[in-house]
Every structure is written in C-alpha cells, then in structure tokens.
C-alpha cells in the first residue's frame, strides 16, 4: 500500500511538473492525501486530469462570485485555491454556483479545509452526487462506492450550512431529563456546605 506521505510527496512533485507553482503543489499534495484518507479517489482523478492538462485548455478563475459560468471548463485546482484564499468573503454568500468544472473531486479538499476555517459545514453538489464536508474531519457522500473519475461537472452547487442542531427541542429535553438521573438530590446540609463557597460575596 502506498502511504499518505508518499502520496503527498509524489503529488506535490507531479503538480510542479505540470506547471503549477511550488506553493500550489504543496496544497495539492495535502489535498490528494486528504481525499485518499477519506476514501475518495483523489489520486486517480488527479492522474487523469494531469494526462490532459497540458493539451487541453482550462479556465483559470481568479475572483470567485456567487455564480461562475464558463464555456471552457474551470480548472479545479486554481478554482479550489482561490476558493480557499477567498473563503472569508465567499462565506457571506449562502450559496455559490459553478457551471462547467473539470474533475470536481479535486475541488473537494479545498472545500473541506474551507469548512474547517470558517467553522461551518459545506454541502457540495456535483450534478447528482452529493457531499457533506464536516469541518475537515470527515466527508459524507453518496459517491463513495463509485470510486470513479468524474471528468466534468455541468452544475456545481456549494451551500454553507448554518450551525444548527439536527434534533428538535423535545429530543434534547428528553435526553437531558435522562441525564439528570446521575445527579444527587442534596440535603439542606449539603446545599450549604458541598459547594465550598461562602454565602455572601460582598467583600
């Protein structure tokens, strides 16, 4: 088995070899090892992308807006880098759309890291495939079983999810009530002495 450290190093060098800067290569190395750790086929997608990268033209996006449309497929690496770099302004949009993004799986690590930076989960929809990026701690997806290369996504949707509970107030109350069964019902004496503090704090 190839280790993540080997993946990181080799991807970094390969990324430099196809023409990206060393700084971007460092980001891609980290990103692909992250995808592989989460069980997503990052290396396979990257390899396919680099096979055609020099011969085919890709759109390099600089400033990302709410809606990003291009006739030429967007490069997932420059798009990802810029997304990460602009995350503090982009988070103000609740949703961001891309049309025509090449190799969208390669965009995921940048979103995953963005999720950690802003402290919000990010929902990522690649045509019919869905991904939930959880603060760079895990990725849930209905794509995990496929392990295939996705060369292009027609429609991409990115949604910043508000930090909300997944349960309702009643669920919480019921569980809280159960947790109280571990508490001790204090006698009057204990109420006076067990906390250790004084009765007045006027000093």
């Amino acid at each position: 088995m190839i280790s993540l450290s080997e993946i990181d190093t080799t991807v970094k060098r390969a990324t430099k070899a196809v023409g990206f800067s060393w700084g971007i290569a460092e980001e891609v190395g980290k990103g692909i090892s992250l995808l592989e750790m989460f069980g997503l086929p990052g290396l396979k997608n990257l390899n396919q992308y680099y096979k055609i990268y020099k011969d085919k033209k890709f759109q390099n996006i600089s400033l990302i807006s709410k809606s990003n449309i291009s006739k030429i497929s967007y490069c997932p690496i420059t798009s990802g880098i810029n997304f990460l770099d602009q995350i503090f302004t982009l988070k103000e949009f609740s949703e961001i759309d891309f049309e025509n993004l090449a190799f969208p799986i390669l965009f995921i690590p940048f979103l995953s890291r963005s999720s950690e930076i802003i402290g919000k989960k990010i929902f990522f929809k690649v045509d019919e495939r869905e991904f939930l990026l959880n603060f760079n701690q895990s990725i849930f997806s209905n794509y995990l079983k496929e392990q295939i290369v996705i060369e292009k996504a027609n429609k991409i949707k990115i949604i910043f999810l508000e930090n909300e509970n997944t349960f309702n107030e009643n669920d919480w109350k019921e569980l809280y009530s159960l947790s109280k069964e571990t508490f001790v019902d204090e006698s009057e004496e204990l109420k006076k002495t067990a906390a250790g503090a004084g009765f007045t704090d006027n000093d």
Binding site: S21, W22, G23, E26, L63, I81, D85, I87, T89
Partner: peptide, 18 residues
C-alpha cells in the same frame, strides 16, 4: 490589500507567504 487577493496574482510565491 488582503493576502487572499495578493495571492491571486502571486501564487508563484505562495510557498514563502506560508
């Protein structure tokens, strides 16, 4: 100028900005 905006045109120096 934010670092994010600076990097848009200067990613060749990204490794030393880091």
């Amino acid at each position: 100028l934010s670092i994010g905006r600076f990097l848009m045109e200067n990613n060749d120096l990204r490794h030393v900005v880091r």
